[in-house]
Amino acid sequence: MSLTWLETEGGPFIVVPRTALSHWSGTEEGDYDLACEVMDFVGVLALPDGAEALVLGDEPLSTAYLPEHRALVRWCYAESEEGIADIIRAGLLTAEWDEGPVLSTTGELVMFDAAYFGTEVGTLTDGTALELGVGRYRVDSASIEPDQLTSFRVHRFVELT
């Protein structure tokens, strides 16, 4: 199975509840600037109407979603795409996870380039749906580095009860 990788134009990715896409203004009204202020691997921003958005900070890396593990995979470096899904699945079992911020969501999330309006997803910019149920999730981070030539950063959504 191959992964579908998304790119940004140099800034961070934002992950927004589908129901709140119209609240993300991209570069127009300062939302993008707020996202760029996140220096950690991940951070949570408050949106109007009480929704929350997850920012994938640090570097603008190619990113894919692994739905069966509720994990975002960020490509740091690798020689090729061959076998990446298997490398990541194996690495998830032995990864050393750092606990991250808590994100509350109303259901399905959409990841896209933070520079765009949320309403432009699917027309001017690509997005990826993250099928999560309503609830609270801690977003943990880990590195998967099976050898000196391969490195991925992974963020998993851990449901809190």
Rank of each mutant, 00 (worst) to 15 (best):
G11V: 06
V38P: 01
L109S: 00
R70F: 14
I84E: 14
E131A: 12
G118L: 03
L160S: 12
I144K: 10
A90L: 08
E82R: 13
E37Q: 01
G57H: 02
V73I: 15
L160N: 15
S25E: 10
A64D: 13
V139S: 04
V154H: 12
G50V: 12
E99N: 03
V154I: 15
L61C: 07
A114H: 07
G26S: 06
G100S: 12
V102A: 12
D86M: 13
A129I: 05
T63A: 15
D40Y: 01
G11L: 07
E79A: 14
V42A: 10
I87K: 14
A35S: 09
S141M: 09
V73H: 11
A90R: 15
G100K: 07
E28W: 01
P67V: 15
V44K: 07
G50H: 08
A85I: 11
D31S: 10
A51Q: 08
M39N: 01
F112H: 06
A53S: 13
D140W: 02
A142F: 12
L72Y: 13
L45R: 14
G83A: 00
T105C: 07
V121E: 01
F152L: 09
M1N: 10
G11A: 05
T128P: 00
R136T: 06
V139E: 02
L66E: 14
T150A: 02
G43F: 09
V154Q: 13
A142Y: 04
T119R: 01
A64S: 11
S25A: 08
A20M: 03
D40H: 00
M111I: 05
S22T: 07
W24T: 10
V158C: 11
D126L: 05
D31V: 02
W75D: 13
A85G: 05
V110G: 01
S104C: 06
D126G: 10
I144R: 01
A78C: 14
P67E: 15
E131G: 04
E81Q: 11
Y32D: 04
R18G: 00
A129C: 08
A95G: 05
I84S: 11
L93V: 06
A20D: 07
L92K: 08
I84R: 09
A90N: 15
L66P: 15
E68L: 10
V102T: 14
E9Q: 10
T123Q: 01
E131I: 02
G50N: 09
E29A: 06
V102R: 12
Y32L: 03
L56E: 05
F13T: 11
G107W: 11
W97F: 09
D40K: 10
P60M: 06
F117D: 05
H155P: 12
R74S: 12
G135H: 07
F112Q: 03
L56S: 05
G118T: 06
D40L: 03
E96K: 09
I14R: 04
G57K: 08
Q148C: 06
V38L: 00
G122L: 03
M111L: 10
E108I: 01
L93Q: 11
V154Y: 13
F13P: 09
L160H: 14
T27N: 08
S2K: 10
A71S: 13
E81T: 14
V102W: 01
H23T: 12
S151P: 08
R138A: 14
E131C: 09
D86P: 02
H155A: 14
E29L: 03
L56D: 04
G91L: 05
F152Y: 09
